[in-house]
Design a protein around this nucleic acid. Structure first.
Length: 332
DNA sequence: AAGACGGGGTC
DNA sequence: GACCCAGTCTT
């Protein structure tokens, strides 16, 4: 693609979005932005970026923060392992790198929560290291540009594309090349109705030449959501309610929610307060909230419960489903 | 190699 | 309702 790279870079210089993490070479700031933006749209992540850096201005602050404090900043963004991993990584940077952000691809890749894309993004954006950052945007661009039949979610596609782009990426300003490829996928080479007339790669694009833009990228997997029913218990006593902190691994790890009912405390339909359906990419949840008398509630195993004054409930990090209940109860 | 992991925008 | 977003980790 050497012939179209100059056009790509010119297109980028004339069309890029001005974003706060593009105004800095601070590796910590860039790292924060890249983690937030994993599987997350720019519009959705933008306010979190500012709040996160406001709360944790330096790596040091992140390493020493309370986990609940970090999850509270992350509340509502999803994929909460990202937040927990960031603190692990911050601690690792203090202990293994003397508090300085690692400066090469291999070391950056060692950080928890940092995979091949994020390591390449940080290495190129912060240190101008010529390694291709391949996210969903870039995969789509390359899939169409070369007309690749291998599904983009297969390892072979990533491997081949990494090799291909690592050879194509300019040694001068590799960061701009990566930004340009990502931006092209986000603004022009979009999943549906790509704006090919505005594309700097049009002349050499396989899909455009064959009018097969809609046949690429090829995708193998289609994730199907499974059903999940949750029965929560509203247990109140002396102006306090019971909250459970979820275990750190798995869904909503480390977040707080009402205790869940089970065989030991079966739900009574007549005590139902309200119910919500909550959709995740991998789960269709039907959640009900029951009023449970604190005297009749039997303590359950594997629960880390705490009594909380109602007016303090919002100090605890909670998931979106839980927030629906809190809002319904008028506590938010 | 496949599944788990959130929430939200778009068509 | 399906797709997919500046993906990574676990099994």
């Amino acid at each position: 693609m050497q012939r179209v790279i100059p056009k790509l870079l010119t297109w980028y210089s004339e069309n890029y979005r001005q974003l706060p993490w593009r105004e800095t070479q601070n590796p910590y700031h860039i790292w924060v932005s890249e983690i937030i933006l994993q599987q997350t749209r720019v519009d959705q992540g933008l306010s979190y970026y500012f709040r996160f850096l406001d709360k944790f201005p330096e790596i040091h602050d992140l390493a020493q923060g309370e986990e609940a404090e970090i999850l509270k900043v992350w509340q509502g963004l999803g994929y909460y392992a990202r937040a927990r991993n960031m603190q692990k990584a911050a601690k690792l940077i203090l202990s293994q790198f003397n508090g300085d952000f690692p400066t090469n691809y291999t070391e950056i890749l060692q950080l928890p929560g940092v995979g091949s894309y994020t390591a390449a993004a940080i290495a190129s954006f912060a240190y101008k290291i010529p390694v291709a950052a391949i996210d969903g945007n870039v995969k789509r661009v390359i899939s169409r540009f070369l007309g690749i039949q291998t599904p983009i979610d297969k390892m072979a596609f990533m491997k081949d594309t990494q090799h291909y782009l690592n050879e194509q990426i300019p040694r001068i300003e590799p960061d701009i090349f990566n930004q340009a490829m990502i931006e092209l996928g986000a603004l022009v080479c979009t999943p549906t109705q790509p704006k090919c007339v505005a594309c700097p790669l049009l002349d050499e694009c396989f899909a455009a030449r064959e009018s097969k833009q809609n046949l690429y990228p090829v995708v193998a997997k289609k994730q199907k959501a499974t059903d999940w029913e949750i029965n929560y218990a509203l247990i109140e006593k002396d102006g306090e309610i019971l909250l459970n902190k979820r275990e750190s691994k798995g869904i909503w790890g480390g977040l707080h929610e009402f205790p869940q009912l089970s065989e030991k405390n079966p739900p009574k339909q007549e005590e139902k307060i309200t119910e919500y359906e909550h959709k995740l990419s991998h789960k269709n949840i039907k959640a009900r909230l029951f009023k449970v008398d604190s005297d009749n509630y039997l303590s359950q195993e594997n629960q880390e419960v705490v009594w909380v004054k109602m007016e303090n409930i919002n100090f605890f990090p909670m998931h979106k489903l839980m927030l629906k209940f809190v809002e319904y109860l008028g506590w938010k």
